[in-house]
Each structure stands twice: as C-alpha cells, then as structure tokens.
C-alpha cells in the first residue's frame, strides 16, 4: 500500500517537472520580438475619417498574414480598457491599414496589436483631437421601407369607419320605428348638422390660420428663470415662435437659432434630427440663397411654424443664415 502511494507521488512530481520545463521552453524565445512600426496622424478633428497603417517586421522579414488590431482606451460606466476599433491582416509587405472615424474630443491613447507566433506585441501611440463637436452613436431616423404615417391614417380611418358603421345601425333603429308620426328625424338631422358644423368649422379655422403657431401675445412673454444658452446670458423668454420677440440683430445667429427653437427640430448646428431636415449639406455644397432662406422662414414649409417679422426680423434671419452657412459670399 505505502509503496504504491510513494510511486504515485513521484510520478506526479515528474509530470509537474516536465510541464514546468515545457512552459519555460515556450516562453524563453519571446525575447526575439517582432517589430511593429505605426504610421498615424498626430492631430485630427472630430468627424475625420482616419487611416492608420502599420508594418510588422520579424528579423528583417515582413510578417505576412498576421492578425492585427487597432485599439483605443475606451471608458464605459466608469471602467476603462482597450477596445478594438478595427481589425486586419498584414499583406505580403507586412503592412496593414486600419480605418476609423474620430467621434470624441480630447487626446486618444491608441495602440496597434500584433498577434504573432511569439505572443502579442503592442505599439502604443497618441493622437491629439483638436476640434469639433462630439459625434454621437448614430443619426436618428432609420428609414424602414413600407413603414410610414400612412399606416396610422389607415388605422384611424378603419376605427372611425367601424364607429360610423355602428352608427348607421343606430340610425336604422330610428327609421324602423312603427310609432305614430313616422320615424324620428332627430338622428339624421343631428348627423347632418354635425357634419356641416364640422366641415364649416374646419374650413373657417383653416382660412383663419395664423402666421405662427401659439402666437398669443408676443409682446408679453412669461417671466421665467434666467437661462444661459450658447454663450450669451439673456432673460429667457420662452422657446418657440410663441413668445419669441425679434432681437433685430442684437443677438448672435447661434443664440437666435436656439432661442427661436430652430434647434428643436433641425438639431444642433443644423445637422438635422427626427422632426426636421438637415439644414447644412455635405462639405462643398453651396449655401442656400439668403432671400429664399428668409422666404422659407416666413412661409414655414412642410409643417414648420412660420415666423413673421415680429418674431424674427430679416436681420435676425440673416444672422441665423450666417451662423449656419458662414458669411455670405460676394
């Protein structure tokens, strides 16, 4: 019994020894490491599409077909760590190209990771982000084919159709009366009256459509807490055309863009949002004509509230135009 146990123990020791020897043998050659050379811009702007290239050389020879990562230090929920931006394989020159879009402001600590036969080799570098606003995850408004407001109209029409259908049976109750004096006329009369009232009422309301919505008394805004929006401190007089009074050129285009609540629909800097179209186009697109811009603001196209002179003077609109598209050329 005892001899058996001793034999087992010595066999185990031998096994562990062999394992240790194998591990040492595997780790030791890592001293001769591959060399990763990175070519990356040092200064970028938010929104730039950035290309980083790296070349991997091992003992003078380019490493072909190696898996490479481009990573940056990402922070989520208070925890930081390396997060992969792009992945690629080296070509016959040992070179790999990564692409990413710069989304945040501030310095970026980055590295290129090479997974060679001898283990992982990292080459760290830093990129300075100098300008631009934070870019968010994605643009709002996914265009799903066949999904649109028409389905809502259809549903409402269906429900109201059913209600009117049910109503028609109620009318029949009156018509089927055997009482003296014939059927009671009140239901059809009421229906007729209701329809006329609604149609005429709607028509009157539509022809009386005011220039700007909720424009109750533009000369008497509510006093609310003073607010500070985009740089300038001013007494907050409410958002939207309702309480807006023309500053007649006294406020900057940016302030007016926020105060007039253009930002509510057209997004920060005119980039567009769920409700409103993007106002600024791609780089290189020409800015819209100032006069047609003013005209649009006066008319309020596509369901946009119209702003009259009392809300935003021509000078104000010009300031907004300049803020969005830069100084007018010529």
């Amino acid at each position: 019994m005892n001899s058996d146990r001793r034999l087992t123990r010595s066999r185990s020791l031998l096994f562990i020894g062999v394992l240790l020897a194998l591990m040492v043998a595997t780790v030791a050659p890592a001293a001769a490491a591959a060399e990763v050379t990175v070519d990356a811009p040092t200064q970028v702007t938010v929104g730039d599409d950035i290309t980083v290239t790296a070349i991997v050389v091992d003992e003078g020879e380019p490493v072909v077909g190696a898996l490479m990562n481009l990573s940056f230090v990402g922070t989520t929920a208070g925890k930081s760590g390396w997060a992969v931006l792009d992945t690629g394989f080296t070509d016959e020159d040992g070179s790999v190209t990564f692409h990413y879009q710069q989304r945040a402001l501030g310095g970026e600590r980055m590295r290129v990771e090479y997974f060679g036969v001898d283990g992982q080799e990292n080459s760290e570098f830093e990129v300075q982000v100098t300008d631009g606003a934070q870019l968010f995850e994605s643009h709002a408004g996914v265009d799903v084919p066949a999904i649109g407001l028409w389905w809502v109209y259809l549903l409402i029409a269906l429900v109201w159709g059913l209600i009117i259908y049910a109503y028609s049976f109620a009318v029949r109750i009156g018509r089927a009366s055997d009482l003296e004096g014939g059927p009671v006329k009140i239901t059809p009369r009421f229906t007729f009256g209701f329809v006329v009232f609604t149609v005429v009422g709607m028509f009157l309301v539509i022809i009386a459509r005011p220039q700007s919505h909720a424009n109750l008394d533009p000369t008497a805004p509510f006093e609310r807490a003073p607010g500070s929006v985009v740089g300038v401190d001013y007494e907050y007089s409410g958002l939207g055309s309702g309480d807006l009074i023309s500053a007649n050129g006294e406020l900057s285009g940016e302030t007016l863009y926020v105060q007039g609540n253009c930002v509510g629909c057209h997004g920060s800097g005119g980039a567009g949002a769920i409700t409103g179209d993007a106002l600024i186009g791609e780089e290189g697109d020409s800015a819209p004509n100032v006069n047609s811009f003013i005209e649009d603001i006066r008319d309020g196209p596509k369901g946009m509230p119209a702003y009259d002179e009392a809300n935003l003077s021509d000078r104000d609109v010009e300031a907004i135009h300049e803020y969005l598209f830069g100084p007018a050329v010529g």
């Binding site: 049910a166 049976f169 089927a176 055997d178 059927p183």
Partner: peptide, 21 residues
C-alpha cells in the same frame, strides 16, 4: 329614444351596433 318600439328590425340593429362597438 328615437322611436324605439321594440320591433324585430330595431332589435336587430341594436344588437348589431352594440356588437360592433
């Protein structure tokens, strides 16, 4: 009461309306 006198046709219409609603 829109002239309800409980005839067959009225009862039918009534049940129809209530049924749809």
């Amino acid at each position: 009461a829109i002239g309800w006198n409980n005839n067959e046709s009225q009862r039918k219409s009534l049940h129809r309306t209530v049924g749809i609603l």
